[in-house]
Design a protein around this nucleic acid. Structure first.
Length: 299
DNA sequence: CGCGGTCAAGTGGCT
DNA sequence: AGCCACTTGACCGCG
């Protein structure tokens, strides 16, 4: 089991998601920003290794406007050696990496342009992992998309786009995560049947919408969609509901008893856990302690 | 130099 | 009908 957090480190005084407005786009600005983002990413990775946080999600903003048509610069080649060095640091320290393209990536949209943009974004994010020379246990995590009033038809469209329009480099990394209102674990399992993509499990989303599966059973079903040799072990997102706020909103800080209970509930299942909690590595560090006390972490 | 409106992109539930 | 939430606020113009 590895524990981690997404994208941003709040302890360090740098950000790997610096960007700029489309209106201020220039090649110079792009190069300068990417260089700073990658330098910060290296620092974050070092922090993570020092603190035994061996699961990390890279921000989508490493390369601003990477999948936008305004960006015609060959940043892949320009930063090739930097990406390779980052990747070798990741491999040497046995870290697990994911990326989570944001809400604009919708493979089953009825709008062809949206699908096209989505594929371009997936190609960009996959190429980051490729440039780092990470194996296919490093994943791209998306949601099922919209339902558009006919979920079965929307799922068929998802499968069709998967089979006919995605490059192999994206397919081998693609995973689907249950969301908090439309695509339940059961729906995701169907998408898995249609495409073979592994299912990333999100406990908070599962609490928001489900088909009655108890937590242990739900995690076990998601875990069974992962081919250990090719995909690695189950990745999951862990969070808890922010008390008194609207459904699905993440808590500010980890509730250690709840996390403890979750680990006890999922005893015997192996997985890497991403803490989607507002205060980031602070909560991840506490989660490491809880998991250690239960003997679930090797480090 | 700090504040606040706005930012490439989508969808659906809540108010 | 508009706002909000989503893996993450950050940028930039204005006073």
């Amino acid at each position: 089991m590895k524990i981690g957090y997404p994208c941003i480190n709040q302890t360090l005084d740098c950000s790997s998601s610096r960007t700029f407005r489309l209106a201020s786009y220039s090649e110079e600005r792009l190069l300068e920003t990417v260089e700073q983002n990658l330098a910060c990413l290296q620092r974050i990775l070092e922090y993570n290794v020092q603190h035994n946080l061996l699961f990390f999600r890279l921000t989508s903003d490493l390369v601003p406007f990477a999948s936008h048509e305004i960006n015609r610069y060959n940043w892949q080649d320009h930063f090739k050696s930097t990406f390779r060095e980052l990747g070798s640091y990741i491999r040497n320290n046995n870290m697990r990496i994911s990326m989570h393209p944001d809400q604009f990536v919708v493979l089953n949209s009825p709008n062809g342009q949206t699908v096209k943009n989505s594929i371009a974004e997936l190609v960009y994010q996959g190429s980051i992992l490729d440039l780092m020379e990470l194996d296919t246990t490093a994943k791209l995590q998306i949601h099922g998309g919209g339902a558009y009033g006919d979920k079965p038809a929307a799922m068929q469209r998802f499968a069709e786009v998967y089979h006919t329009s995605l490059p192999e480099a994206v397919k081998v990394r693609l995973c689907v995560e249950n969301d908090d209102r439309t695509y339940t674990l059961q729906d995701c399992l169907q998408l898995h049947e249609l495409t073979g993509v592994p299912i990333i499990f999100d406990n908070l989303h599962h609490e928001c919408v489900n088909n009655g599966e108890p937590m242990h059973e739900a995690v076990a079903m998601a875990a069974a969609t992962w081919d250990a040799a090719k995909d690695g072990i189950l990745m999951m997102d862990y969070s808890a509901q922010s008390p008194g706020e609207r459904k699905g909103k993440h808590v500010q800080s980890i509730q250690e008893e709840a996390f403890h209970d979750f680990l006890v509930e999922t005893e015997g299942l192996n997985m890497d856990i991403m803490l989607e909690i507002k205060n980031k590595e602070a909560s991840a560090l506490k989660a490491v302690e809880v998991a250690r006390a239960l003997g679930r972490l090797k480090v």
